[in-house]
Amino acid sequence: MKKFILDLIVKENVRVNKQYVLLILTADEALPPMLPGQFVEVKVENSPNTFLRRPISINYVDYKKNELWLLVQIVGDGTLKMSELKENDSVNLILPLGNTFTLPEKKDSKILLVGGGVGTAPLLYLGAYLKENGYPCSFLLGGRSKDNLLQLCDFESIGEVLATTEDGSFGEKGFVTQHSVLNKIKFDAIYTCGPTPMMKAVAEYAKRTNTFCEVSLENTMACGIGACLCCVTDTTEGHVCVCTEGPVFNIEKLKW
């Protein structure tokens, strides 16, 4: 897919909660094609300690409204500056970067999308994309408490939403891998993104139940285009760049 350097315009900056903002970006021209799982590299202006671009996964693309959604977790100076962007501000992005998820062959496959924290971001676009292509899917979202479950309404508009919270304030109490659905249904495909311990636990479940499973990794990156070789992960084929060979990997390929 052809990559672009684009100046997009902030259409809306939605404060999701204390830690998260949703940036809705648009452009005068039609946005280029982007696939679920892909990410963008955002240039952060006026942040003296932020030298590199910030890789942010694509949360959703609305081609009708010509919108690109980025769900941003505020973790440091760079993302803090991004969270302060205002309507009509210009943002420079490189996009689309990375690969996408592998869709099952059969449309009647039982598909589960498992996410935790900011890792739920790419699953919204994946869910919407699956639905648009005739694949029904369920979401299993995990968080510390209900407040940590992001974009619940958006997920509910796409498919069934199952949840776990550590404090039991929403869904079942516990971690995603303890959810009862995993004992009731044998899924054909599981896609997951979230904190590494969560993804590893999901991958372990998938291996145990012999289920097709892809994970989306979030390594520290510089270039985002496979030039600097900084974001590598160890695979059965040796060190490979998460930015170009991933961020989506089949669990069989990863040396976890």
Binding site: L52, A222, C228, C231, G238, H239
Partner: peptide, 23 residues
């Protein structure tokens, strides 16, 4: 050469440190 293990990158003010190791 497989290069060095991850993490290979540290951002610094006005620059970056790398430890790719000639992969």
């Amino acid at each position: 050469r497989q290069g060095n293990p991850y993490p290979r990158l540290a951002e610094t003010p006005s620059g970056m440190l790398n430890a790719v190791g000639l992969q």
